[in-house]
Design a protein around this nucleic acid. Structure first.
Lengths: 195, 195
DNA sequence: ATAAGAATAGAACGATCGTTCAAAAGGATG
DNA sequence: CATCCTTTTGAACGATCGTTCTATTCTTAT
């Protein structure tokens, strides 16, 4: 079927502005009116492209995660050691979660009113980056680079900490935040204890 | 001035239920109706005790933080080494942020619509736990226990990570979460690198 | 040029939001 | 028992919420 005119472009603009707003103000805090105003299209038109607010968010989140995962899988082999991979994945999170939807995921997941199907999709989403982290840790263990007693817990903690840092994207300048990400990995690797 | 009947008790109930709801559903996600229903008092009565939603939240957050700080200051001397203090403060965060208001603080702080006076109060609030963490790290440095190049960054990161863990209070059982907190500190101290 | 269909706008819906207010209820004091 | 002041209610406000619907504009095909 041929694409007639550029409705895809419109859809993309709406999705991008929505992602930005969700990231900044959360799910409940972002209204369709906000999205309409910010994207420059009417409120009704948002519903031409997306079934409802929840589906709109889910679409955005899924797209973001899928792209993120694919890109990481592509560049991950460029880093040789597990240590290098860990620094790289941290920087990669910062650079590619331009839309820090993680806190919104949390917001929705802890909301008892969310419908079960959405909830399942949300859990699947979080697993995308977690799988990436776990692979790095496993690689480090096999390598002899890392000593990890509980892989799953370690992965969870690492993911959590990067997620926490993402929330500062709108209130910190890039360089400062980048340093924070790197410093996080440094501490995660070496700790602060005197050897 | 004598207290006639137990309005203080009512106020406390409202504040407690509100704190619980804010923690679970966020600031924007929690309505005065929710608070009214959950506390068992009329919507109008919430406004008898609190000026508005924002002030209600700020009062709760400030009270929580003040109590937290005082309690920590009281028990902190019981732990001798900086390492012990660090494990203790992590456990203390878990046990005493029954109301994990941290993510709501974040939600409000990143909201451009918040009025400046509120914003300043919010920043002051976050400093309470940060000062506590910093004191522990400084103690560890003076001790020779810790090697820290940038005290402020380290403090910030530690606070951030504990905050991130707090968000799981409603979705994880206590024991699992407690183990996460302890494991966080262990990694923070020793890292995962093979020595 | 016209018909058809896709894209977009804008008004309108009922529900709920935060907030206000007037009135009722309740305990204390005389 | 009457009075006063505090506590509590419940209705009502305008604003905004997510969503629906109808009408209009625009693009393409005939």
């Amino acid at each position: 079927m041929k694409r007639h005119y550029d409705s895809d472009q419109t859809r993309k603009i709406i999705a991008e502005k929505a992602a930005q707003l969700f990231s900044q103000k959360g799910f409940a805090g972002t209204s369709i009116s906000d999205i309409s105003k910010e994207s420059g299209f009417s409120k009704g038109h948002v519903y031409y492209h997306f079934e409802n607010k929840e589906k709109l968010f889910m679409t955005i989140a899924q797209d973001t995660m899928r792209v993120w995962g694919d890109k990481w899988d592509a560049i991950s082999p460029n880093y040789e050691t597990a240590t290098a991979k860990l620094y790289a994945v941290a920087a990669f999170v910062l650079d590619n979660y331009k839309t820090p939807l993680l806190k919104v995921l949390q917001e929705l997941m802890t909301n008892p009113a969310a419908d079960p199907q959405t909830l399942k999709q949300l859990y699947d989403l979080v697993e995308t980056p977690m799988r990436a982290y776990e692979a790095v840790f496993q690689y480090g263990i096999d390598n002899g680079e890392f000593v990890i007693e509980d892989l799953q817990t370690t992965t969870f903690l690492f993911g959590n900490w990067l997620g926490a840092l993402c929330q500062h994207i709108f209130t910190m300048d890039y360089d400062t935040l980048h340093r924070m990400f790197q410093q996080s990995v440094t501490i995660f690797l070496g700790g602060i204890l005197k050897k």
